[in-house]
Design a protein around this nucleic acid. Structure first.
Lengths: 149, 149
DNA sequence: TATTGTTATACTCTATAACTATA
DNA sequence: TATAGTTATAGAGTATAACAATA
């Protein structure tokens, strides 16, 4: 833990305050986007579609990344396959394994859902003055790095 | 919708891009904080504790704010009352109504959970260079306003 | 008659344990 | 024997409909 090292009290307070504000803002925004962007795919389904958009994967890989159990991922995958958004193909090399991938319909649906969700943020950021948008542009780059750590 | 007015194409693209990045960053951060801050209270319980920390409320008010049904809120409140984090008191003026409020234990638990969640962000923001922390400090203030819109 | 809250019931997503097929 | 995936079953969360008590 990097807090063993000496940091003046007021700087630590400032950092804690900044971290607290950022966490609160991110969680509130995420919550409102989830609530206020009515979507045809549930959050856990959306996550899976996003992963599969990066690359096709096995159920096991998806379960590990999404931190859910194997049976849960089977269920989620089943619902997406049933809706025609995901394709389940047997692996020719290893007959125990299957590969999940987005269908054309899945790709289109994912794009639509993303656009709906972005709409929430676009409306609000668009209403801000130019200078604040520029601050957010710098912050967005930093926050994406933070999210990836 | 404010997009009826004329905005040059490249500015609109920039805005869409900024909004997209911000949404992605906020949702990823929120997701990781939820996943990686193992807490004894589930997300929906945490939300209710936060609301009750602001002020005592009836189940109906909570259900409306949290956008869940009455019976769902009854269930959530029951679990929190059973754990001693929330107190359910009959309203002397209107005998149909009850008032939910945090117990001392509930207040303490809420404070602990918040600290755990802030820890995730504190570690990562603390690792950034001074200049980036200053950008985030400006951004935090703006984002809190955005979250409140 | 309208409102507050609860109970009854059902659906979804989650998990663990047991099972099948393949390596 | 170990691994990939599914099926079986149960536990929480959600919802709607029906009910009780009170206004």
């Amino acid at each position: 833990m990097s807090y063993a090292q000496y940091v003046p009290d007021d700087e630590r307070d400032e950092l804690a305050h900044l971290a607290g504000d950022l966490r609160l803002a991110c969680m509130r925004i995420a919550r409102r986007i989830r609530f206020e962007s009515p979507s045809s795919v549930a959050p856990h389904q959306f996550s899976v579609l996003c992963r599969l958009a990066d690359s096709p994967m096995t159920p096991r890989q998806l379960a590990e990344i999404e931190k859910v159990s194997g049976p849960s991922m089977t269920r989620t995958a089943n619902s997406l396959v049933a809706r025609g958004l995901v394709d389940r193909a047997p692996d020719p090399a290893d007959k125990r394994s299957v590969t999940l991938s987005l269908t054309a319909d899945g790709t289109r649906t994912l794009r639509e859902v993303r656009r709906e969700r972005e709409q929430w943020m676009t409306v609000r950021v668009g209403a801000l003055p130019r200078e604040e948008q520029q601050v957010l542009a710098q912050a967005a780059e930093i926050l994406l790095r933070v999210a990836a750590r």
